[in-house]
């Protein structure tokens, strides 16, 4: 491909203002000596100009109003979801704190003050650990089920 053909390949992009500065310079330089390419570039520029001047279709006013209303509802729902998340996180943190605090308490009640210093596990200690695990597992399953149901409801809405 000679220089002339290479430049012709660039003309459409030149009209679109999409050339690198170096390419732009090459094209400008070539235009001075090649009338055919200058005419060709003018054609591309006219086409590009026509595209820039295409009329802008406008959405109907009722559609814009609906979009606004739906977005406002979306904002309210998003704020509600954020609030639910904050409440959920707070409840979980509170429950964990309560659980962790209750362990030494159970140990104290089941083994007395000295029992707390005993590193061995006793029956009450194991029972409490099993009980805590079961409660957390049940709570976690319920939370996941509820959240999935909510998501399904949102998708159907």
């Amino acid at each position: 491909m000679n220089d002339h053909e290479k430049i012709r390949e660039l003309l459409a992009l030149a009209a679109a203002g999409a050339l690198e500065p170096a390419e732009e310079e090459q094209v400008t330089k070539h235009m001075r000596s090649c009338e055919a390419c200058a005419a060709e570039l003018e054609e591309w520029r006219l086409l590009a100009g026509g595209l820039r001047r295409l009329p802008t279709p406008q959405p109907r006013a009722i559609i814009v109003e609906r979009a606004r209303a739906r977005a406002e509802i979306g904002f309210a729902e998003e704020a509600e979801r954020r609030w639910h998340r904050i409440v959920m996180i707070s409840v979980v943190l509170f429950a964990w704190a309560l659980t962790l605090l209750s362990w030494p308490l159970v140990r104290l009640i089941s083994g007395g003050l000295l029992g707390m210093l005993d590193p061995r596990l006793n029956h009450a200690w194991l029972g409490f650990a099993v009980f805590t695990s079961v409660v957390w597992l049940a709570g976690g399953t319920a939370a996941v089920a509820l959240s999935l149901q909510k998501r399904r409801e949102r998708r159907l809405a």
Partner: peptide, 13 residues
């Protein structure tokens, strides 16, 4: 038009 409304809903989210 539908996509226009959905886009603004997505903006809100």
């Amino acid at each position: 038009e539908d996509l226009f409304q959905l886009t603004w809903l997505r903006v809100a989210e």
